[in-house]
Design a protein around this nucleic acid. Structure first.
Lengths: 241, 241
DNA sequence: AGATTTTGTGCGGGTTCCCGCAAGTTGCGT
DNA sequence: ACGCAACTTGCGGGAACCCGCACAAAATCT
């Protein structure tokens, strides 16, 4: 009747998920397991109607990459992301690839069994999106830009994190040099990095560009997997020139 | 007879460890559990003779921070680190704090039950160090500096990752400005970052300083927790001035 | 449509960074 | 002790970055 595909690298978590799925969805007769994104993509292709619950942070090929190719092939696939962390980097990565009107979910591993059960049923049966509170909070902030970052600011953040020069960024994004520097100013302001002008002796000065990247990391605006993705996109762009 | 303290934030992994410990060490009569580094420190203090197996990557207070304070109080405590990753950043972090002649271990979560059992017995009964192969490899490279980084290179890597200027680094490490820049040159060379001198048109130029940090991240020379620690040390130093 | 807020560009100058050249210092082996 | 390697420091210049001031273009509001 219903097939569910589990993509999760940790064996303990995988078997826990398996049990949870069977308990929450009696109408589900088959549960398939994959231990990383690559295998996950393959199994998703082979079992056309599979609904998916998967981890982010696997290797090789993490959950976001896998989701992107899966959704590209079948945009109506329902995916529940089940992750340890609610980094803004993940949230942005996902909301960038979720297809129009697709049903998906994001629940944290720290959630109760009940929350997980509810999410499974809502998404797979009711086609409703279920986003964990904490994750929800981040989404609001990003969009409402009360204290959040616009896409263009985020874009430039990624570019300096990759180590590009202003000039290179300008070429890549089709902007003038000055515009790039302008955006950098905005970014520095929002990240609250600046020279702590120790007026008398030269005080603990920061290299704003490098400092911004660090602060973004500490605030989980960036994380390893977002860097990895960005790096891949960059080298792709470098090929095409 | 013997007490073992488990410090691990994931409930599934925690109960798995609990079972593994009981199975591997019949001479152990009490197993205590803590769900983060802070609680771990407290329980270690209260149960003086406890042997410890713990995760890195917890919050608040990760395994390295917890180990440092525990070893500071009782340097003969035996600790087995049980982690998902073998980042060089972790390996360096640990080997910096392990006391003279202390017995400790580092096994990956992906290791077999048998490996874990063996490690538990070797460390807690025989007082022998047990380091997983992959982790071992990193240690060699760091020290033998065949392709590894000396401490001073690593130090300056951390400093630019924090976003300090050359001048600030010079003050912090008591060096001249030029020396700092010299070390940066070495670092760039070892990380293989350089200007891809596109002789005709200005080619994909990099800001070496920022690029070096990114490359270090992708190579797992740095990770979130190492940045976190470095940031704490920095603000401490800024206080003392 | 007109006003108001964004967002993109140009110019200019003060800093910081990247790095070649060269000389002094320290450490280590044989 | 001598020599060779590795590390530190100074000087100098060209490039890149940080950023204030000023003005066009585009998007948004009323």
């Amino acid at each position: 009747m219903m097939k569910v595909l589990i993509v999760e690298d940790d064996p303990l978590h995988r078997s826990y998920l398996n049990e949870a799925v069977r308990a929450a969805l009696p109408e589900c007769d088959t549960v398939i397991e994959a231990e990383n994104g690559g295998v996950g993509e393959k199994l998703a292709r082979e079992n056309k109607s599979a609904h998916i619950v998967m981890d982010l942070q696997m290797s090789p090929r993490n959950g976001i990459e896998a989701a992107r190719t899966i959704w590209k092939e079948r945009p109506d696939t329902r995916i529940l992301f089940w992750s340890n962390y609610a980094d803004e980097a993940y949230v942005r990565g996902i909301s960038r690839i979720v297809p129009e009107g697709a049903a998906y979910g994001y629940v944290l591993k720290s959630a109760s069994d009940d929350r997980l059960r509810l999410a499974l049923r809502s998404i797979f049966i009711e086609s409703q999106c279920v986003i964990d509170r904490e994750v929800r909070g981040l989404q609001q902030k990003s969009l409402g830009h009360a204290n959040g970052f616009t896409d263009s600011e985020y874009e430039i953040l990624v570019d300096i994190a990759l180590g590009l020069t202003d000039r290179a960024i300008a070429r890549r994004r089709n902007l003038s040099l000055r515009s790039v520097q302008n955006r950098l100013q905005q970014l520095y302001e929002k990240l609250e990095v600046y020279q702590p002008v120790g007026e008398d002796s030269e005080e603990g000065r920061f290299n704003l560009r490098a400092r911004a990247v660090t602060v973004a990391f500490l605030r989980k605006l960036l994380n390893y997997s977002s860097l990895e993705r960005a790096e891949a996109e960059l080298s792709e762009w470098l090929q095409a020139r």
